[in-house]
């Protein structure tokens, strides 16, 4: 399969400014990061606060540009200014704070914002807006004010806003960090549905381990570098290594690991309740 997103050894520096606004020094936020995603993949990027994962996300839809290395999205290099709008349309982005990314004062007007910027015809915008709102289950709220919605609902409106641009990929930068458990479930469910049903490539950035277990592959970042890479099973069987990067493992996996250490004959990388119960049932029979 072709590589839909290809990030090749990129580096990015933030300028540290002194009180007069002169450049005092540079902080390297990304350092030789390489990541790729195939069409239709569900990728999760894990990392503690300040590990550089948000900076990385902003590179994928050309909001930031690497100091070194290249970012290619669907064959277009983000450094190519003429392709800027094309890249942003192709790779949509959801941010952390649900309030700070809704532009419209009415749900449907917000969803229409992207396609309006792209110059889509009025009638088609209407169709896209209705379709997108239905896809995230927010169609009934199309005429509500965003201020009256819950956090999870606001994030779903933001997802609809990106969907209406007909992207091939959606990058979600900690979309659940400010939500309650109910809202988190809503957003993750929506993301998985888009990946399964519409085949949209998803890049989910999070520090909730439970949200990562459904992904095809996981990258772990720490201090601006990619430090681990693999399937959820592979990643979550390395408890100690994750801990050293200030991360944990999902609770069910933690129980499985503890049982294994206590001498039970269990395989590595158990992620779901079902798997663990099945293994325990097998042990009991033996």
């Amino acid at each position: 399969m072709d590589k839909f997103i290809e990030i090749d050894k990129i580096a990015y520096d933030y300028n540290r400014l002194d009180e007069e606004g002169n450049v005092e020094g540079v902080n390297r936020a990304l350092d030789g990061v390489s990541i790729d995603a195939k069409r239709g993949e569900f990728i999760t990027i894990l990392g503690a606060n300040g590990s550089g994962k948000s900076t990385l996300a902003k590179h994928i839809n050309a909001l930031l540009f690497p100091a070194e290395g290249t970012v290619t999205v669907d064959g277009n290099n983000t450094a190519d200014e003429e392709k800027l709008l094309e890249i942003r349309q192709c790779a949509g982005m959801i941010f952390q704070n649900p309030d700070n990314q809704i532009i419209g004062t009415i749900v449907e007007e917000d969803v229409a914002f992207g396609p309006e910027n792209m110059g889509v015809e009025s009638k088609e915008i209407r169709e896209r807006v209705d379709e997108s709102l239905k896809a995230v289950g927010m169609y009934d709220y199309r005429e509500s004010s965003p201020n009256k919605l819950s956090g999870g609902q606001k994030q779903r409106v933001s997802i609809a806003g990106v969907l209406a641009m007909h992207p091939k990929c959606i990058i979600m930068d900690e979309p659940t960090a400010m939500l309650d458990p109910q809202g988190r479930r809503e957003v993750i469910r929506a993301a998985r549905a888009l990946n399964d049903v519409e085949g949209i490539t998803i890049i989910l950035i999070t520090h909730y381990m439970e949200e990562a277990i459904y992904s095809d592959r996981i990258y772990v970042m720490d201090a601006g570098r990619v430090v681990m890479e693999g399937t959820p099973k592979e990643i979550f069987s390395k408890t100690e290594e994750l801990k050293s990067h200030k991360l944990t493992i999902p609770q069910v996996t933690a129980v499985a690991v503890a049982l294994k250490e206590a001498g039970l004959n269990l395989p590595d990388g158990i992620l779901s309740r079902k798997e663990l119960v099945a293994e325990l049932a097998r042990l009991k029979k033996e």
């Binding site: 609770q251 069910v252 309740r273 663990l276 119960v277 325990l280 049932a281 009991k284």
Partner: peptide
């Protein structure tokens, strides 16, 4: 609209599996 910790569900499932 609340949930118990994941382990509470796990133990229930283990119990239901006959352990």
């Amino acid at each position: 609209g609340l949930a118990a910790p994941e382990v509470a569900y796990l133990m229930k499932a283990v119990h239901d599996a006959g352990i």
